[in-house]
Design a protein around this nucleic acid. Structure first.
Lengths: 110, 110
DNA sequence: TCTATTGTTCGATTATAATCGAACAAGGAA
DNA sequence: TTCCTTGTTCGATTATAATCGAACAATAGA
């Protein structure tokens, strides 16, 4: 737990990133980060058990979508805007644009 | 089998589309379609059993990524460029740009 | 009509991922 | 040190998806 894995820009993989972004809960997290900037994990209460949330943070982090910064007992997560824009130009903007319109997750689970 | 389901532009869902695009085989199919335009299903031999391929075509079609046109015993598939660009501006371009660079699937399955 | 071609569907298997309680780890404060 | 807070990890369960052979369906041609 000492060091959390973050892929370098070169290590980021398209299908892995798209997969990370294909889950409604993870899109909700992304939306919150886009709206409010860096957040402590505890600040985004999503009516989901913390172990489940932690899992989603890990998927987002290990794909390269978010950065996790450790400060004391808290973790602060944020979107890796520049890195994503460098590796996959236009991708993040397209996703965030849709998230702004709705929540991107509506009726995703039928 | 008479009619194949295709979602309307309004019915397209972000997480569903991202999920459809998150698979290496489906990205390979997309790349082929982007490079060569409309293709008959049989023309893209991907060293994968046809039942598996048919499954991936279905995922792509039902998410709204591709269109399937029936002509005789053959099916011709193509990317729904305009519809995708209307619904999720910039998303497809960002994906295709990366596919042009590599195949988007390299080392995705470890 | 018989046969070959193209592709879907079925059904079973395997693989991968989501979920979440409980235990654990690391700080910070009393 | 003890307790509280924050978050991860473990382990088990459930859910979802990928895979692929075999059977089926539709059409075209001999």
């Amino acid at each position: 737990m000492r060091t959390l894995y973050h892929p370098s820009v070169a290590e980021m993989n398209l299908s892995t990133v798209l997969y990370a972004l294909s889950d409604p809960i993870r899109l909700s997290i992304l939306k919150r980060l886009a709206e409010n900037g860096e957040q402590s994990c505890s600040s985004l209460d999503m009516s989901v058990p913390k172990s489940t949330l932690s899992h989603h943070f890990k998927v987002l982090r290990e794909s390269g979508v978010i950065n996790t910064r450790i400060e004391g007992t808290q973790r602060y997560i944020s979107i890796r805007y520049n890195d994503l824009n460098t590796r996959f130009p236009g991708l993040l903007d397209a996703v965030l644009k849709e998230l702004k319109r709705t929540d991107g997750a509506q009726e995703a689970k039928k």
